[in-house]
């Protein structure tokens, strides 16, 4: 029977592709650590590694959301200002409502991000606009709102105690809270993607939306769901970043767009959607954070940092991210 034959063939090929990217990504991480160790012994100390993981956590949370959107074959370019939005709204709410505000700060920040995600999802799903251009426009709108918000109302920009604690506290065995939060977010993402019907539908829509639609999947709901998750994750990371640097400021999310997308893609997720797993994204996030950290420690000037950064992404993708020749 041809029906039983196809999956039997497809699974080993899929597994091999995922494995190869994972092996290369984790191999690169180890190589970079060893290379760094030659430069300075500090690179292998537990303290340095924990610190790197703590910094990775912010990018990791953003990348978790970005991955959901990339898996359905779309892209979320509104991440930079959604991060800033989450941070600014959380600190502002804390300033406006005092004691209650401190409790509400984090949920409100995340909710604002989810709202942006909802609008993105509505535009992409119902207006059928290319996600690249719609989320870019949304990014500009949110930027405008935040300029108006900070300029017109002069809201509080200091992070609350709770935000600071979540971002930099280390109460359990010296493990940073940010890392624990990333582990929770990652566990939820893995559960969603591998153990729920929603996860199956995400891969189905990413592979061929028309086929998913004809199979009875409410594809618009899946698209909207993924964009909401992406917006909420970006805003949550913004809240934590505000806690990490003790305040929210303009354009604080701008340095996170390229690394987030690069981390997802370096982790073996197909940018056209439908393929990829979360383990790869973890590898991609750690890889990118390490790369940035090593270049910073070596006191490489900004110019060299950008060039090496771009080249590493290109070379790694050329090693395993190449598309198949599809001309049958």
């Amino acid at each position: 029977m041809s029906e039983s034959k196809t999956p039997a063939n497809a699974i080993p090929v899929l597994r091999f592709a995922v494995d190869r990217s994972l092996v290369i990504a984790f191999g690169c991480i180890i190589l970079m650590l060893l290379g760094g160790a030659l430069y300075s012994r500090e690179f292998l100390s537990p303290e340095y590694l924990l610190q790197q993981l703590q910094i990775s956590a912010f990018l990791g949370i953003i990348a978790s959301g970005a991955m959901m959107v990339i898996l359905i074959g779309h892209i979320d370019l509104s991440i930079p200002w959604t991060v800033t939005l989450g941070a600014m709204m959380a600190t502002a709410v804390a300033g406006w409502y005092g004691e209650t505000g401190n409790v509400l700060a984090i949920p409100v920040g995340v909710l604002c991000g989810a709202m942006v995600g909802l609008l993105n999802g509505l535009g992409v799903a119902y207006l059928r606009l290319p996600s690249m251009i719609f989320t870019l426009g949304m990014n500009a709108v949110v930027q405008g709102l935040m300029v108006l918000h900070t300029g017109g109302f002069a809201p509080q920009d200091h992070a609350t105690e709770a935000m600071h604690f979540l971002a930099v506290g280390r109460p359990i065995l010296g493990i940073p809270n940010a890392l624990l939060i990333w582990i929770v977010v990652g566990a939820i993402t893995i559960f969603l993607l591998t153990r729920t019907a929603f996860g199956r539908r995400v891969y189905a829509v990413g592979n061929r939306e028309a086929a998913a639609y004809l199979s009875g999947v409410n594809t618009n709901a899946v698209i909207i769901g993924c964009f909401i998750l992406s917006g909420a994750a970006a805003a949550f990371a913004g809240v934590l970043l505000a806690g990490y640097s003790t305040k929210a400021y303009q354009a604080m999310g701008d340095p996170y767009l390229l690394p987030a997308i690069a981390a997802v893609v370096l982790g073996g997720t197909n940018i056209l959607g439908g393929r990829g797993n979360y383990l790869g994204t973890i590898a991609g996030v750690v890889l990118i954070t390490l790369l940035q950290s090593i270049l910073a420690v070596m006191q490489m000037p900004e110019a060299g940092r950008q060039i090496i950064y771009g080249l590493v992404i290109l070379v790694m993708l050329l090693a395993y991210g190449r598309g198949e020749i599809d001309r049958k």
């Binding site: 950008q306 950064y309 080249l311 992404i313 290109l314 991210g321």
Partner: peptide, 13 residues
Amino acid sequence: LQPIITTLATGAV
């Protein structure tokens, strides 16, 4: 490679 990710990376270079 996909144009989006290629030009993002070459753009950095």
